[in-house]
Design a protein around this nucleic acid. Structure first.
Lengths: 196, 196, 196, 196
DNA sequence: TATGAATGAGAGTTCATTCAT
DNA sequence: GATGAATGAACTCTCATTCAT
């Protein structure tokens, strides 16, 4: 019973990701989401309070998953620069692997005012904090210059990845995102590296 | 008559900037815009085709103004790195000077699908192209490393500025944006500089 | 322009009386009201805030009219008992003349909680106060017994008329309401008269 | 099993009385009723056909109880006037004893069209018939004037009690209902009494 | 018997857009 | 050019009712 309930919720959430990504939050109809999930539209309201709530839940849960996956992978590496490299690579790979979710995160995350003020900020903030953690390690390791402003650096990295991904999506994915990742890595690491 | 017409159009456009920035595109009512401009809502339709058209026009004209202003200022400098420094400084200053317009550009620009596919991409693309132009100059001047991917670099710069600005706005402007600008400059220039 | 605006409002109000009377407040659709008034349903919302607001306005305005008409007629008479007789006669005549409005007053007035607590109580209260005024006159004239509780008497008169009318309507109007009026007059006046 | 069934049915019926009285028929949710009765909402449909059916059953059974209780008490008295006096007193006492049920009877009874046309009329009609019976006795006893219209008189008595009770409830029960009862008795009996 | 997840008809309301004045 | 009354498509959300378990 419990599993079933969770399953239907997941179906709706997944459908919502797809529909929001395709049409945008405001142009997405609850009926579309329900239809895609194979349920009646009333059913959506058994699991979510409002349409906006669906977006919030997506962000809460999916972003969470994303971040924990990334940092699990990142944890394999043994120094800060390698970790950052990995982080960038993985995140951009996800854009290819899971384009709908990424599109939603990048393009739609900013739409609903309520949403912006609630979870989105804190989630992105948390993510940037984790990046800052890596940067701090890098400073301790002597690999990153100690005068670096961690907030600015982490924000720039997050936004830079976002920007590259957004552009790639909007330009119809006609070039190799992995190469961009390498360039981004060089650029960012060049900017933060501790030079002798 | 022509001047007058232009004036009323401008009033509406300016009001729209304010209203879109405050409420977001989808939550902004045409009536609000008209009211703020001191005209009847029917009047809006004498100057613009649809609500979306207003957003497009804002982007077309206001972004144009922004970019040409920035590059006028940037033109004063005599080498690529100084130009980039200037560009970053000016653009972040504008976030403070003209927060509504900037907010609109950063947060709302991505909302309307029609819009995304029409002018926004090309305008941002144009802007990035100009940044690429500066980077190219830098390579020619020997200040920027020649293996730099210009697209990635320009996108990252644009997005990085955007990200810093967005975060600053969402975090209620409680810290000094100029200091961030300096950090951003160091980070970016560090990443692209040609090292001996 | 002003007249026109008022006219359309009246059309909607009149249609609402008919529709509410026919279907009851909760079963009446705003579309029905609009259709009967010959306007689009959106138009209703130019004149009234919500469906409930329509009911409130009806009560406010129509009851007002009713009461002032009744007391105008009643004013012709020169002693309290004659006035009461007239009041009963006129009010029951109105049930025949204006059945929809009366039905609404009698059957629907009590439906919306918001409504009950706002205007309806006070309107009926006002009406009963006026009846009490007549009773007071009657006491001064020596026609009504001075120990009569005016509140109870006025309430009973109001409710009695209401009850007779309601029953008449529910029993499909198959008997003569005027005869009932006479009986009601005798009964009530018998109960309040000052006996030597 | 039979007893149990009856018990659960009663629980639901009692909860419905409370919920309908509190929220009104149309604003009451079947879920609320079920919850208050400590059962699942599906269970309600094992005992009642529709939400409206619950109201009808309440009326059928509860009104029945009320009426039979009243006439049991009334039967103690030995002449018509005493019986009427008792009837009025008891009925108004019930308003204080059992306010929810009374409120339902007085305020909500008129809401559902189906209901009005089915049981409510006949139940009230039956009650009025019984009052008429007492009045007839009164005429035979020479206590009530023989020219009295029994229908009008019984209706007026019923409505008068209803009106007094309704007003008392709507005015937050801030005065003594027993005193009103005495006044009502005097007024009504004064109106019907056979005078020498 | 009892449950409660699922349904889906249906309502109120909003607001971009039109057009007669 | 300017107005703002009127429109009606379209949407979100509710809740009585059903039915598989």
């Amino acid at each position: 019973m419990n599993i079933k309930k969770g399953e239907k919720r997941q179906q709706i959430l997944d459908s919502a990701v797809a529909v929001f990504a395709e049409k945008g939050f405001y142009n997405a109809k609850v009926t579309d989401i329900a239809h895609k999930a194979g349920v009646a539209h009333g059913t959506v309201y058994l699991y979510f309070q409002t349409k906006e709530d669906i977006l919030i839940q997506i962000f809460e849960e999916k972003f969470e998953e994303l971040v924990s996956y990334i940092f699990m992978e990142v944890g394999v590496e043994h120094n800060a620069l390698a970790k950052l490299r990995r982080l960038i690579l993985i995140q951009l790979q996800m854009v290819e692997t899971n384009p709908e979710l990424t599109e939603l995160m990048l393009l739609e995350a900013r739409q609903s005012s309520k949403f912006i003020l609630s979870s989105a900020i804190s989630k992105i903030g948390d993510y940037c904090d984790k990046i800052e953690g890596i940067l701090k390690e890098g400073i301790e390791e002597g690999l990153v210059r100690p005068d670096l402003d961690l907030t600015v650096a982490s924000t720039m990295l997050y936004s830079g990845i976002e920007g590259i991904a957004t552009r790639w999506m909007l330009e119809n994915k006609h070039y190799n995102l992995n190469l961009c990742a390498e360039q981004l890595i060089q650029l960012f690491i060049g900017g933060i590296r501790n030079l002798p």
